[in-house]
Simulated scan of single mutants.
Amino acid sequence: MAPNPGSATDRLDDEHYPAYTMGRAAEMLGATAGFLRSLDEVKLLVPQRSAGGHRRYSRYQLRLAARVRTLVDEGLGLDAACRIVILEDQLEEARRINAELNGRDRAAEPTTP
């Protein structure tokens, strides 16, 4: 039986599903809740909110936060670290799109016998 769209199985595979509470996210990152709140304040992360108003983070957001934490631990300021992470993320997305478009172009090219 195939899983229903939006089922628990789909959510487990979705890197953007807000599955982690602030406490769990901070524990996984080895950071404090204050660090995560600071990423929210500078708008690097915009966590989803539970019905009770609690922040919820996705795996994707935690990867960004982990990268910022590494850069801050290396001595960069929070604003600079966030800017670097944003640019790295944008570059990765542009490369993904470029590869996808190049694949489509190659598929559309006629083959010569």
Results as ranks from 00 to 15, higher is better:
residue 38 S to E: 08
residue 105 D to G: 07
residue 49 R to Q: 14
residue 40 D to C: 09
residue 50 S to Q: 02
residue 9 T to E: 09
residue 89 D to N: 00
residue 103 G to E: 00
residue 113 P to M: 15
residue 60 Y to K: 07
residue 77 G to S: 14
residue 73 D to L: 11
residue 6 G to R: 03
residue 9 T to S: 07
residue 84 I to N: 02
residue 57 Y to A: 00
residue 82 C to Y: 07
residue 59 R to K: 03
residue 96 R to Q: 06
residue 94 A to S: 12
residue 33 A to W: 03
residue 77 G to T: 11
residue 104 R to K: 14
residue 61 Q to Y: 14
residue 30 G to Y: 02
residue 64 L to I: 01
residue 18 P to E: 03
residue 3 P to M: 06
residue 108 A to G: 06
residue 96 R to E: 10
residue 47 P to W: 05
residue 21 T to H: 02
residue 112 T to A: 13
residue 43 K to T: 10
residue 34 G to V: 08
residue 2 A to V: 12
residue 10 D to R: 08
residue 69 R to P: 13
residue 84 I to W: 02
residue 62 L to T: 01
residue 41 E to V: 11
residue 18 P to D: 05
residue 91 L to K: 08
residue 66 A to G: 10
residue 22 M to A: 14
residue 19 A to Q: 03
residue 70 T to L: 14
residue 35 F to E: 02
residue 50 S to F: 05
residue 37 R to E: 13
residue 1 M to S: 12
residue 16 H to N: 11
residue 107 A to V: 11
residue 96 R to H: 07
residue 91 L to W: 06
residue 86 I to L: 04
residue 87 L to V: 09
residue 1 M to K: 14
residue 23 G to K: 06
residue 37 R to L: 13
residue 110 P to S: 12
residue 8 A to P: 09
residue 88 E to T: 03
residue 81 A to L: 02
residue 99 A to W: 11
residue 72 V to F: 09
residue 111 T to E: 11
residue 103 G to F: 00
residue 61 Q to G: 15
residue 89 D to G: 00
residue 82 C to T: 09
residue 11 R to T: 07
residue 83 R to T: 08
residue 35 F to Q: 04
residue 7 S to E: 05
residue 5 P to G: 02
residue 31 A to K: 15
residue 72 V to K: 09
residue 47 P to Y: 05
residue 111 T to L: 13
residue 112 T to I: 15
residue 15 E to M: 03
residue 13 D to N: 04
residue 107 A to C: 11
residue 57 Y to I: 01
residue 58 S to D: 00
residue 76 L to E: 12
residue 100 E to P: 09
residue 15 E to N: 05
residue 79 D to P: 06
residue 4 N to T: 13
